[in-house]
Design a protein around this nucleic acid. Structure first.
Lengths: 214, 214
DNA sequence: GTTTTTGCACTGACCAGTCAGTACAAATAG
DNA sequence: CTATTTGTACTGACTGGTCAGTGCAAAAAC
């Protein structure tokens, strides 16, 4: 399972492309192991073994276990926000309303989780922890993702598509949570269902077609 | 913060009430520490220290670190389901509809999380992990909680209050997720808000008053 | 010839779980 | 009433193992 494709972490040109490939293998190994067992329960030896490299290579490429993890986090959330933003923009370019944009983002979220379930698992598990080294990284990264949803909500309120009484930050968080948890449940407890199926159920909930609408 | 009150673990009479008090202290110490740091990163020494007992006492009262954790989980989720069920029943007894029952459960969920934030944090962080000893415990316990919501949804569909096209298990999971994540966000990122405030925002989302209703 | 990776032995901190022993109250015996 | 035993709850030093991170020489890779 390919976890993520590298574009650029820093301004480094290519050339050292072999290194990038090694890093990639390490990310992939780490993300599944940490998702399954948690950060502390996962050993560097395990990560190296699963990636098929020597332990020394891990430390040649990353300063420490937690630095490896932080870079993993940053990268993964980068992919998610890019995907969300793209979905919202595409919907907008096509001239649909904000409701459709929201729906497109729900779908983009599901597609992401479908492709990178381990990353999602790990993200949820670590997000609300306090007292951890990467807490600040995580906070920034969360804000970026939620901000995309907030943006669409705010625009919708401005254009009158959404009710003015909605609480933008809280509603955005709730929406993200809804998709996250529903998708994780889908993957863990009823993996046979199709993405469209899950998307349809969430759309219905989102558009208030559950409780009838008054 | 009182985490939970004991009733009976086995058929033991009272008399050994001192033991119960110690267990209680250990639960409370463990729940916050594990919520903050995760299971593996939390040491038994830390738990003992925060509880104000010697390490040996932990092992006098629990077979192992993970048994302590499992009992903690079971107890906590027991409290949550009881509270959800009670909310649904109360609403039903008062002859309100299923929409109100759902709303009452959302509120009950928020009240629970407000009272036991650490437990909720810990629960979410561990729920989707695989390959862990307490995986089965967690699964059973999750099903119990979600089942309460599913029950109300199913009744609502039967009485025609909810659309027949809703996907009961998935919608139940999404609702639970929505409340869980919104509440954790509330506690972590905007703790100054009132419960009523958060409840109102979620109610609106639940009743489709966000996207206007068509 | 420079960069990257390998393989492997090693260290030192940390930690789950153990165990011999303490404290003390309540029961039993003398 | 005093002495002894028994059971329960707890203590904290100790052990055996685990694991992040190091050091380094030699091999690939480019």
């Amino acid at each position: 399972m390919t976890i993520m494709t590298m574009d650029s972490t820093n301004g480094a040109p290519q050339g050292g492309s072999r290194r990038e490939a090694t890093r990639q293998k390490l990310y992939e190994a780490a993300v599944t192991l940490i998702a399954e067992q948690g950060f502390s329960a996962t050993t560097v030896d395990e990560i190296a073994e699963r990636a098929g490299v020597a332990k020394g290579t891990v430390y040649y490429n990353f300063a420490s276990k937690s630095v490896l993890f932080e870079e993993l986090l940053r990268h993964g959330v980068g992919l998610l926000t890019a995907s969300l933003r793209q979905a919202a923009e595409r919907s907008e370019r096509e001239g649909r309303g904000r409701v459709d944009a929201l729906d497109a983002m729900v779908r983009a979220g599901l597609v992401f989780i479908d492709r990178y379930p381990a990353f999602t698992q790990l993200y949820v598990a670590e997000l609300w922890r306090t007292n951890r080294a990467w807490q600040s990284t995580l906070l920034v990264v969360r804000q970026e993702a939620v901000a995309v949803v907030e943006g669409v909500l705010r625009e919708g309120v401005a254009t009158g598509e959404f009710s003015e009484e909605i609480d933008v930050p809280l509603t955005a968080a709730a929406l993200v949570g809804m998709v996250l948890v529903a998708a994780l449940d889908w993957k863990s407890f009823q993996p046979e269902r199709s993405l469209d199926d899950v998307h349809a159920a969430l759309s219905r909930l989102l558009q208030g077609r559950v409780s009838g609408c008054r």
